[in-house]
Design a protein around this nucleic acid. Structure first.
Length: 809
DNA sequence: TCACCTCGAGATCT
DNA sequence: CTCGAGGTGA
């Protein structure tokens, strides 16, 4: 035997030993050798590998902390999405019954059918991770991210001793293991004790500490955090011959591979079994060495799981059943009022700091006036606070017995009952706390608003904050504090003002802000830091000048226009100009835009100040990325009948609008009719009268003419060849019915796309229906299609059809 | 007209 | 995350 192969053999032997001891220590919690012996072998292997780098291998225990700190995490696309799991809203035992009932309903089981077997386990309070084992070797670890794409945290995950770098036994060719990285409570406390001893700041709770550690760019830091792991499921799997057919069997198999699997797990029968487990874990909860936020119920049989399938985002065969949120008592020290971007006044309870559900809570929103009064929260009250959904602090109720009281004047000091609450019931102020404008609450609305509009500093400030936000213009480094100062010192009036900022203005602002805050670090270094900050900010502002049109529209902060409506506007109208000019009736013809939203948009651009602001943005060099021309969809969306209906002329139904347009040449001709001509039309008398009355109002007649102009102009702006090129008509003349929830397309998108392809979307299935596209939760339409023998497609098949060159294939 | 669903808007804390 | 409100299909 050569010397090299001798070393290789020894290295393999050491690795095997360390692997076994490591597993005993980390996973089984039952070491068979003292720590010192493990360390000795570990160092020997390290030395051997250092001397002979060719002997190194990725699954060596010495390679847990390797590699350099990263600049950022690489994105990882999950082959099988990491779905979230539905949370049962009912936290009482009845929640277990509700889940069992929904599963049985979905499976069409009768009350007397045998109970369903469920695999039940704990819901760990940590960070979900997907581990990828190829031929038994850990090759990649990724966070959940948005479920479809996560971050590559392999380096960090490798530092977790409990996670095997290599699986025991005959591993599948590919095994993706899903599980939770968490931190034990005792480890968390020891970590904090160490930090405190060194005078450092302790962590707040185990969950955040674990999540933070996994997302450390430098694995050496992660390695110093005592993390643990539990496996609870699978992602992509190939080449697993002996794959079990139950969830419980899978977990047992994962444990046999050497992965840590929590032992608090069972297979139970029916709702009663679920409820009993829920109850048992409730009692066990405090004695567990780690935090959980509930239990998880999963249908045990993998075949039945497949049968149940998925809703849009979550499996139908699993549910998380949480425990009632932790509550705590504290005192309302004040009720402040915040003014939002739209002028909404929101009462916020300032609380005496209280530790609840893992964090210290000092504020809690009280939503609106009704909410405060319903709970009757007053200053000085002792209140029950919890974190709703374990996140947002919420005032649950007031402890009336502890309300501060005053003895009424003239009452006998020693008699009872002659006292009154110290503070009156809460009311929102009649004037804006920021600008002093009066406040209004529209009848039927829950929200009270400041009437000051953009003259209110709070609203201006928030409008700019919104504009600069990440999902809007994405101006980095422009935080709340700076915006407030910019607005306060009037360096910026509207959003366009941001583009007129220069170095001097920014430095001036910073100096004045610092002066006001009484911290004047007037050193050369501070000056340099400030200049650097201003430079970066100016660069970020300059970099924001070419957003996609949808983002710019969203950034403008038009009421009722969020991310999705902005996208609809951009997709359909293509260019900013068409949006600015659009009459309300045209907007209301776009998908998911109704009268209220359309009026809000048209109203925004009808305001000269807003038009000026948009012009100023354009003049400052903001140039949104926009389409070459409006969408070809408009041909379908802007049918004269549709637009006419959207004008909301009294008594004019879609049917009558159709009759009407069959008699007049076009919208222009309609706008030119006099009263006698309208009455002479072949329409029900009441409709004709209403239409004549409507046309008598000059503004409405003008609106109709404007709408006709807009339609003519925008359709003319769509090049004919674009229509040909962009919209082949694979579905020409076909009638399609959509049912259920499609996996990626919304109903509207699907409809628009079918129509763009020349098809007609109908609401109900008949013999004339060419095919039905069925998604999740398809209902009676699917049944009817099957009864009539109408072909049923899924979304993928529809997309394939849409992508086909034409209908003659 | 109603029930359902999606979107917008607001707030919290790390 | 939650609530309210707007849009749409039944």
């Amino acid at each position: 035997m050569t010397q090299t192969s001798l070393f290789a053999a020894r290295a393999a032997e050491l690795r095997a030993l360390l692997f076994q001891y490591g597993r005993e220590y980390y996973v089984l919690d039952a070491p068979s050798v003292p720590d010192a012996e493990y360390d000795r072998l570990f160092r020997e292997l390290q030395a051997l590998e250092a001397a002979h780098p060719e002997l190194r291998s990725d699954d060596s225990p010495t390679q847990r902390v390797g590699g350099e700190a990263l600049a950022e995490f690489a994105p990882v696309v999950h082959a099988v999405p990491m779905l979230s799991i539905r949370t049962e809203t009912d936290v009482t035992a009845a929640g277990a019954e509700a889940f069992d009932a929904s599963v049985r309903r979905e499976l069409d089981l009768l009350p007397l059918d045998a109970p369903i077997d469920y695999a039940v386990e704990l819901k760990f309070d940590g960070l979900a991770i997907s581990l990828r084992y190829q031929d038994g070797v850990l090759t990649q670890a990724a966070t959940r991210g948005d479920g479809a794409t996560g971050e590559d945290v392999t380096q960090n995950i490798r530092t977790i001793g409990q996670i095997p770098l290599r699986l025991n036994g005959a591993a599948p060719a590919l095994l993706e293991v899903r599980g939770e990285v968490y931190m034990r409570r005792d480890h968390f406390e020891a970590l904090n004790a160490g930090l405190l001893a060194r005078g450092e700041k302790p962590f707040v709770n185990p969950r955040n500490t674990a999540a933070g550690a996994v997302r450390q760019l430098d694995p050496k830091i992660t390695a110093q955090r005592p993390l643990s792991f539990f496996a609870y499921g699978l992602g992509q799997v190939t080449g697993w011959d002996a794959m079990p057919d139950t969830h419980a069997g899978v977990l047992d198999a994962l444990a046999a591979f050497g992965l840590p699997v929590c032992e608090v797990r069972e297979v139970v029968a029916g709702a009663a079994g679920l409820a009993a487990f829920h109850q048992r874990v409730a009692e066990l909860r405090d004695s567990l060495p780690f935090d959980i936020d509930g239990v998880v119920y999963k249908v045990n049989s993998l075949a039945v799981q497949r049968q149940l399938g998925f809703r849009t985002r979550e499996p139908r065969w699993a549910v998380a059943h949480k425990y009632p949120a932790q509550e705590a008592l504290t005192v309302v020290e004040a009720i402040d009022v915040q003014v939002g971007r739209t002028g909404a006044l929101t009462p916020v309870a300032r609380l005496r700091p209280v530790f609840v559900g893992g964090v210290t809570v000092t504020n809690a929103t009280l939503h609106n006036e009704d909410e405060v009064q319903r709970k009757d929260v007053r200053v000085g009250d002792t209140v029950v606070v919890r974190r709703a959904g374990d996140v947002i602090p919420e005032v649950v109720s007031v402890v009336l017995a502890q309300r501060p009281m005053q003895v009424l004047p003239g009452a006998d000091l020693f008699s009872e009952g002659d006292s009154a609450p110290l503070h009156p019931p809460y009311h929102l102020p009649s004037h804006c706390p920021v600008c002093g404008s009066h406040t209004v609450r529209e009848p039927g609305e829950a929200i009270t608003r400041c009437a000051g509009g953009l003259s209110c500093r709070a609203q201006r400030s928030q409008a700019i904050q919104h504009f600069a936000g990440r999902r809007m213009m994405d101006i980095d480094g422009l935080g709340e504090r700076y915006i407030d100062s910019l607005v306060e010192f009037e360096l910026v009036r509207g959003v366009a003002g941001l583009y007129a900022l220069d170095l001097d203005k920014l430095l001036d602002m910073k100096r004045r802000a610092d002066e006001r805050d009484n911290c004047v670090p007037d050193t050369v270094k501070a000056g340099k830091v400030a200049t650097k900050w201003a430079d970066n900010l100016l660069q970020a502002i300059a970099a924001s000048k070419t957003p996609p049109l949808a983002r710019l529209l969203f950034a403008l902060g038009i009421r009722h226009v969020g991310e999705s409506t902005a996208k609809t506007l951009a997709d359909c109208l293509g260019q900013l100009d068409w949006v600015r000019r659009a009459p309300a009736a045209a907007l209301a013809a776009l998908p998911d835009i109704g009268a209220v939203v359309a009026d809000s948009i048209a109203g925004f651009f009808a305001e000269p100040g807003n038009q000026a602001e948009v012009d100023a943005l354009l003049a400052a060099g903001v140039a949104p990325q926009q389409a070459a021309h409006p969408s070809t969809k408009l041909h379908g969306l802007f049918e004269p009948v549709t637009l006419l209906v959207k004008l909301a002329i009294p008594r004019l139904t879609e049917l009558r609008a159709g009759q009407l347009l069959a008699q007049v040449a076009d919208l222009y001709a309609l706008a030119a009719l006099n009263r006698a001509q309208v009455i002479a039309l072949d329409l029900p008398a009441e409709a004709a009268n209403a239409l004549a009355d409507w046309l008598d109002k000059p503004t409405q007649r003008a609106a109709l003419a404007q709408l006709a102009d807009y339609r003519r102009d925008i359709l003319a702006a769509i090049p004919a060849e674009a229509e040909q090129a962009a919209a082949p008509q694979p579905l020409a003349g076909k009638t399609v019915v959509l049912t259920g929830t499609l996996p990626t397309l919304s109903r509207d998108e699907a409809k628009v796309r079918v129509e763009a392809a020349g098809g007609k979307v109908s609401g109900s299935v008949s013999k004339k229906t060419d095919f039905v596209v069925a998604g999740e939760a398809a209902g009676s339409k699917l049944d009817k299609a099957q009864a009539l023998g109408v072909p049923v497609l899924d979304e993928a098949a529809l997309l394939a059809l849409l992508a086909a060159p034409d209908s003659s294939d």
